[in-house]
Amino acid sequence: MIKLNSNLMIHQYFCLMIRYLKKQNFWFVFTPYFWLVLFFFIPLALIFKISISVSEWGMPPYRDLFSLSEDGFKIDSTLSNYLFIFSDPFYIRSYLNSLSLAFTSTILCLVIGYPIAFYVAKSQANIRIILLVLLIIPFWTSFLLRVYAWKVLLQGSGIINSILIHLGFITEPISMLHNHYAVILGVVYTYLPFMILPLYGYLVKFDLNLIDAANDLGAKPVNTFLKVILPLSLPGIIAGSMLVFIPVVGEFVIPEMLGGSDKLYFGKIIWDEFFVNRDWPVASALAMSGIVILVFPIVIFQLMYAKYNFKNE
């Protein structure tokens, strides 16, 4: 009796589910999520699996994690790839280099981008639109070509060296390429529009009368900025910083084009481990550690920030 009852309940529940899904247009709702699970989460799970597999010669160059042989079911897993990475300061330094590059360039973008965004947002409407178009053009121009432009400029025979020699500051061309300063310059240059545009978006909504009000009430300009303008543009600062920080952490192209061997970055290390050394398990372990070291802090920060916003509202 009880069995029948529970069967009936399951049946009823099932009917309800179907009705719910029909009403909500099942495929309309779930197709994109299926796509993301298939092409984003399963691949991530796969590199996790490979990262704990044993390296081996052959194709694919790792031993299967699970194997079914005459001896029975066997799990062949190892943490040696992770131990290898974390016992070698070379890899740890590349993570730290990437983090410090992302921090430095985000702060530089903010310091350079904030005044630009502020003055563009505070211009007269007709000038503002022209300036905005001028900001969007580099944003659309190919990222690779903008990095290449700096490679041309910083050459030994490049225009900057020529100007400096012409002005008499130096007599011999100095080598400005292939060091981590060139990388920072390239990153700041290419990601500056990503900082300016969200900042602009918040600053343009900002009521100018508030500045006047603060001035009338006797606030010093510094205090007006710190206590009125800055807090109100904080969401823009966070959004812009995220748009710079996240891609720079895994940046491969800019260090490859402008950088040298003085500092190696995470993106380059993975690339070489995969394409040059062909060591899939170590490359996968590097990627997994990269997610934990470089990506989790960002996610945690965003969750905390969302909570903070929620509380303040």
Binding site: F40, L44, I47, I246, V249, F266, I270, V295, I298, V299
Partner: peptide, 11 residues
Amino acid sequence: VMPEIILGLSL
């Protein structure tokens, strides 16, 4: 939030 190098490798 996924660095493109990790995305490329996993895909």
